[in-house]
Amino acid sequence: MSRSLRRGALAATAIVISIASLSACGAGNDAQTLGVRPDNAAVTVDDVQIQNALVITQPEAGAEGPAVVSATVFNNGRDPQTLESVTLPGTSAKVTLKAAQGSGPVTVPAGGSVVIGGKGNASATIENGREAAKNGATQKIVFKLSKTGDVQLSAFVVPATSYFKDFGPTEIPKPPAATPTGTATPTGTATPGHGATTPGHGAEATATATPTGEASHSAGH
């Protein structure tokens, strides 16, 4: 191969590598996003999209205490919407919604989103979480929005461990205090020392020797 052809081949190789690197970088961002995002429930209805929906229970299996619904609600419309309620069909669970700040409603801004769950975000607390959801199962969730109406999907039920620890219930019940297994009893009855309850031998002799009048009278007689 001539020197000019060799230079041309090297230049072409460099261009191909550059394009491949840029393509990999662009694809890599999407791939990385898909890689770190849990494969959780997602649904789109009209202008509303809900992603990464989960029911997150207490970190300890069987622990009493609330569970939470965690999700990201997107509003692709031109008008804000209010998240009016979150319900769990098929259960008697009550879900309490709370905005990230203040006591107002949870509002999803136009062209924006609201994260439910996690520190500093809006919350959806399931009061009787243990009865409402079982780890490893799926649970239907209905998000009711002011304009779109009901948006339903099925979500996984997971404990607040590993990736989900920071999005789980903020109220973690304390373990019950340890109770003694038996009552301590004395192994014997303490008895006072010999000199404490009864006079010593010398004291007793003095006491009996004092009234000696009668004995002296007999001796003198």
Results as ranks from 00 to 15, higher is better:
1 M>C: 06
8 G>A: 14
10 L>W: 05
10 L>V: 09
20 A>K: 01
21 S>Y: 13
28 G>Y: 03
29 N>Y: 10
31 A>H: 02
31 A>Y: 03
35 G>S: 11
37 R>S: 15
39 D>R: 14
41 A>H: 08
42 A>Q: 15
43 V>W: 04
43 V>C: 02
45 V>E: 02
46 D>H: 08
48 V>Y: 00
50 I>Y: 03
52 N>D: 15
55 V>S: 05
56 I>D: 00
58 Q>M: 14
60 E>P: 02
61 A>S: 15
62 G>S: 07
62 G>P: 05
64 E>Y: 01
64 E>F: 01
65 G>H: 02
69 V>M: 10
73 V>T: 05
74 F>N: 09
78 R>M: 10
82 T>V: 13
88 L>K: 09
94 K>W: 04
94 K>C: 00
99 A>M: 01
102 G>R: 03
103 S>W: 08
107 T>V: 15
108 V>M: 03
111 G>W: 14
114 V>W: 07
114 V>P: 10
115 V>S: 06
119 K>I: 10
120 G>Q: 12
120 G>V: 11
121 N>Y: 07
125 T>M: 12
128 N>H: 10
134 K>Y: 05
136 G>Q: 10
137 A>G: 03
138 T>V: 08
139 Q>Y: 05
139 Q>R: 15
140 K>G: 04
141 I>M: 07
143 F>A: 01
145 L>F: 09
146 S>M: 10
147 K>E: 00
147 K>G: 00
149 G>H: 01
150 D>T: 04
150 D>Q: 09
151 V>H: 00
154 S>D: 14
160 A>W: 03
161 T>I: 02
168 G>H: 05
170 T>F: 11
171 E>T: 13
172 I>N: 10
172 I>L: 15
174 K>D: 12
178 A>I: 09
181 T>F: 07
181 T>H: 06
185 T>I: 12
186 P>A: 13
190 A>W: 14
192 P>F: 06
192 P>N: 04
193 G>D: 13
194 H>K: 10
195 G>Y: 11
195 G>Q: 07
197 T>K: 12
198 T>N: 03
198 T>L: 03
198 T>H: 04
198 T>G: 00
199 P>H: 08
200 G>N: 13
202 G>N: 11
203 A>V: 09
203 A>T: 15
205 A>I: 13
207 A>I: 13
208 T>D: 12
209 A>W: 06
212 T>F: 11
212 T>Q: 05
215 A>R: 09
220 G>E: 12
220 G>N: 12
221 H>C: 04
